[in-house]
Amino acid sequence: MFMEQLSNGIALGSIYALTAIGFTMVYGIIRLINFVHGDIYMMGAFFALTGLTVLGLPLIPSFLLGMIGASIVGVLLAKFAYSPVFKAPRINLLLCAIGAAIFLENFAMLVWGPETQSFPTLIENKTYSIFGFKATTLQLIILGVSIALVLILTYIVKYTKLGRAMRCTSQDMEAAKLMGINTNRVVYFTFMIGSSLGAAAGVLVGMYYKAAYPMMGFTAGLKAFVSAVIGGIGNIPGAMLGGLIMGVSESLGAAYISSGYRDAIAFIILIFILLVKPSGILGKSVKEKV
């Protein structure tokens, strides 16, 4: 049973990690707690579902449709909801994010209806057992897709010009401008990448639990936030680690303590981390050199 719960936890954790990465990237660039991120994840699931059921597309194109659709929504939000208030105090930006979240939830209810929609079963879910690990096909797919996306992201951030511009912008936006970096473009690009990763997580969850509903992003967004904070907000490897820790401890906690505490466990870990290392596991405490 432990091994099964562990693979459950790893699958769940990879989904949290994907969601948390988008969250932490946006925070890293514009210091915004992007409360709309959970709803982007929901939009991803619905776009993919529409691709599968309405348009009758196969799985992979639908998956991509979810990611692309949600990243367009993310960029549009950045453009029309956030960029007008970039220069205003941060609280205005936060309020815009909350407003955008309410908008997207209601938009989804209007378009796809408020009830839970079932995701078609596309993959025969078999159980494999490797070295004592028990994992299902879907869990392996979740893990594989997450690893692949994280590798692509790491490549972009580390080795491309735009990635370097992103790192500089997140360290010091003004200095980045003085290097000739078009920081607006970097911000939109960050929303695009972050949203597509969030959407991928949304589609994977839809496939895993075979359901999508307009409020599915609410808890997911909160947990992404918690994962990002646990790992050290603004830090991409930290967000992955935070997501995995959350997923595994939630699954094990649900199995060995009580499944009623499933969601509470996330926040217990958060409180514990904030008490012990407020900047998060991989977060750096800000030190100023004068």
């Binding site: 010009k161 370097r164 511009a165 790192r167 500089c168 360290q171 010091d172 003004e174 200095a175 003085l178 290097m179 000739g180 970096i181």
Partner: peptide, 19 residues
């Protein structure tokens, strides 16, 4: 100064040549 503290010296210099 506003150098990029999480980039190494050469990466910092290369950021100057970004354009």
């Amino acid at each position: 100064r506003r150098i990029f503290v999480e980039l190494n010296v050469e990466e910092n210099l290369m950021m100057g040549a970004y354009l």
